[in-house]
Structure formats: structure tokens, C-alpha cells
């Protein structure tokens, strides 16, 4: 379980996170939603110790994040993070060099699934294919938790469909997944937990299926209530 307790973050005078707490459980797909600039990415960065917090606590299965835990939790940011002059295979080799949890067989499966060509150089790839490489490098790690920042942003419909398929596949099964997105449409039927952020706080946290059952509302319905007043 990833436990986020009362985290605060400020950029200059601007309070971005103002006491946010929630948990991410294994075997569940959780989604942080909120309009742009609401601090979703900051939360993921903070979990991965890539940005300092003003206060608050984050633990992963009860432990504080140290570099050895990067074998247990993977982050797929919304930016290409491999070297552009590498090809797909070299990017995978790089991962294999450092991560104990790199699963070469699964990596091969994903390359096939995404129809990537191992000898393609990253800087020659389309934006959609670059996003796929990013996913590949994260998903092929045998980690317990995966964080994904805006996996659908700026990607064409068909790539989006392919990426959506990842979420109902064995690639994420039994793992704890935390996604941020403002394009909820594509994945709302895949989510377990939805965490709505607004003005640095959690406005609402609910199970999508329970929301449909008890109030007959889709995730977008709930979002509309929050952001339209």
C-alpha cells in the first residue's frame, strides 16, 4: 500500500497541495483526476522522491522511499525519459543493466503487443510510439506499484485504445496502479478508485462502481459537479 498522509507543497507563495491524504492499494487501479495545474503530477513526483515536500509523509508498504525501492515502484512520466539517440533495444538494455526487477520476457511481450521495432531510434518515433516506449520501460519491471502521469495526453485515438488495453491485461494485474489524467473518458470503466483533486485538497474520493450503483452517476458526472460549481 502506498500511503500518502497530509502532504503540503508550495511553489513560491502558491500552495499547490494543501493537506492531501489517500492510499493506493495493490490490485487496484486508482486515478487522480482534476483540471490542469491542480498538483497531480506533483503528487506522483513526490511519491517518487523527485520533488521535496513542505510537509507530510509518504510510505510504500510502510517504508520510506529509498533508491532500492525503485525496484518495487515504477514511474512512467508524461515525458520521454530515455536517451533520444538510443534505439528501443538499447533503452531496454539500459534498464536491464540496473534493475533487478527487469523482466526481459515481459518486455518482449510488450514490444510485440505495442508493435514496436527494437531497432528504431527513439528520436525517430512518433509521439504515440514514444509514449509506448515509456510504458514499455515501466511495465516490464516486476514492480508492485506503477505510477503513470497522463498516459493519454497528446496521443492519437488508436494508440490510446492500445494503451487502454494495457489496463485490462495481465500487465497491471495484481499491481497497484495510480494514474493521473484529465481525459477520464477513455478509462473510467477501468477504474477502481477515483480521487478528485480541487484547490490543493481532495474534494472527493470514491469507488467508481459504487458511485454508479448508489448514485447512478458516471465519474464525469461527479467531476462536472465539482468543476462547474
Amino acid at each position: 500500500m502506498i500511503e500518502i498522509t497530509d502532504i503540503h507543497k508550495q511553489f513560491g507563495r502558491k500552495k499547490v497541495l494543501n493537506g492531501v491524504s489517500f492510499t493506493v492499494n495493490k490490485g487496484e487501479i486508482s486515478c487522480l483526476v482534476g483540471v490542469n495545474g491542480v498538483g497531480k503530477t506533483t503528487i506522483l513526483n513526490a511519491i517518487m522522491n523527485l520533488t521535496p515536500l513542505k510537509s507530510g509523509k509518504i510510505s510504500i508498504d510502510g517504508e520510506k522511499l529509498t533508491s532500492s525501492l525503485y525496484n518495487k515502484i515504477a514511474f512512467i512520466p508524461d515525458a520521454a525519459i530515455s536517451l533520444p539517440h538510443y534505439n528501443v533495444q538499447e533503452s531496454m538494455d539500459f534498464m536491464a543493466d540496473y534493475y533487478d526487477t527487469w523482466n526481459a520476457r515481459r518486455a518482449k511481450d510488450i514490444v510485440t503487443f505495442f508493435r514496436l521495432n527494437p531497432s528504431d531510434k527513439l528520436h525517430d518515433l512518433s509521439k504515440g510510439n514514444q509514449a509506448k516506449v515509456n510504458l514499455l520501460l515501466g511495465l516490464a519491471l516486476d514492480v508492485d506499484y506503477i505510477l503513470m502521469d497522463e498516459p493519454f495526453s497528446g496521443i492519437d485515438v488508436f494508440t490510446r485504445e492500445q494503451i487502454t488495453e494495457v489496463f485490462s491485461s495481465y500487465l497491471v494485474e495484481d499491481r497497484g496502479v495510480l494514474i493521473t489524467t484529465h481525459e477520464i473518458n477513455d478509462i473510467e470503466h477501468l477504474l477502481d478508485k477515483v480521487i478528485l483533486l480541487d484547490e490543493g485538497k481532495i474534494y472527493k474520493e470514491f469507488n467508481a462502481e459504487v458511485m454508479r450503483e448508489t448514485e447512478g452517476k458516471s465519474v464525469i458526472d461527479v467531476m462536472r459537479e465539482v468543476y462547474n460549481g
Partner: peptide, 13 residues
């Protein structure tokens, strides 16, 4: 275009 810092800082070392 590529923020390789992500990768470097997330290495398990």
C-alpha cells in the same frame, strides 16, 4: 526534449 534526470534519479542505486 528528454528529461533524462527522471531515469537517473530513479535508478535503484
Amino acid at each position: 526534449k528528454n528529461t533524462f534526470a527522471y531515469r537517473l534519479l530513479m535508478l535503484p542505486i
